[in-house]
Simulated scan of single mutants.
Amino acid sequence: MAAFNFTNSDASTFILTGIPGLEAAHIWISIPFFTFYIISLLGNFTLLSVVVKEQTLQKPMYLLLCILALTDIATPTSVVPKALGIFWFNLKGITVAGCLTQMFFLHMVSVMHSSTLVTMAFDRYVAICNPLRYGTILSNAQLAKLGLLGLIRAVLFILPLPLLLNQQPYCANRIIPHTQCEYRAVVKMVCGDITVSRIYGLWLMFVINGFDLTLIALSYGLIIRAVFRISSKNTNRKALNTCTAHIFVMLTYYTPGFFSIVTNHFGEGIIQHVHIILADLYLLIPPMLNPIIYGIKTKELRDKIGKYTCQKVITWGH
């Protein structure tokens, strides 16, 4: 999608400062940024390649991992290249149109990611609580429809944010003390009435997080109830084991996100650069860890990745 064709502010620019107070350490900070980003890309592209190549993995559970991997590639890619431009080359300028476009993609992908986690929880619920109807309820065609629905929801929910902010006048001081055009950071640059934008932003946060987390909690509550009704301890253990990777991934996604929101709204005493580093790590750590978690916890995927990696090593050796 091209940058939004904004009419009243294309000629204007914002200045992204990076991490205020730590400018002298920007080069050193860029090392973990770059490292985490590369590991994330390698892990998620490997997962995508293995699932695409292996016919046995082309079923809903692994296709959901592919959707998650795509969001895990898009999330840091919307932020890290610009952040590294600031750290390495002092390229701090960004047009208002570019800033609002980055904000749109960043938050849209985040909502899509959350939708995927909800679908993954539903997938495990059906697999454990209604296994005989699994192929009917969650076929690949049904999964494609759910993925498209999640994308439409993300676009429709997030699109009003940049559209609302584009109608606002911006203050003369257009310095954003951040590495990215995060919604809260951009709102602070507005000199007009931002009541509607603020109300919509808060409504969005509570509706998306509240709705998605409620569905996930409900799915896992039903799963736990079903598992404890299983008399066989071995079957009980296997059923729980299929959920552990999902639970780890959800914890790595929602926990730092929730902590970041809380510190932004109630952590007035926290130093500014701590807020910024937390927000950046929230976008870098989960995409890096997700393919590692699934690679370790899912035996079938682990075996296929091992086979795929060995084939690559042998090919390069020749």
Rank of each mutant, 00 (worst) to 15 (best):
T13M: 10
F14A: 00
E23G: 02
A24R: 09
H26N: 03
W28Q: 11
I29C: 07
S30Q: 05
I31H: 12
F36T: 02
Y37K: 04
S40H: 07
Q58Y: 04
Y62Q: 01
L68E: 03
T71M: 13
I73D: 07
P76Y: 13
V79G: 04
P81Y: 06
F89L: 13
I94W: 06
A97V: 10
F104Q: 02
F105T: 06
V111M: 07
T119W: 04
A121R: 01
F122T: 03
F122P: 02
R124T: 06
I128G: 01
L132V: 13
G135K: 13
L138D: 02
S139L: 07
L143W: 09
P160E: 05
L161Y: 01
Q168I: 10
A172M: 13
A172E: 13
H178M: 06
E182S: 00
V186W: 11
V190Q: 06
G192E: 04
F206Q: 08
V207S: 14
I208P: 00
L213R: 09
L215P: 00
L218E: 06
S219M: 05
S219G: 03
Y220M: 04
I224W: 12
F228N: 15
I230C: 12
T235I: 14
H246M: 12
V249Q: 11
T252M: 09
Y253W: 13
H265C: 14
F266L: 14
I271F: 13
I276E: 05
A279I: 07
L284K: 03
P286T: 01
I292L: 15
I296D: 10
T298P: 01
T298A: 07
T309P: 07
Q311I: 04
G317R: 13
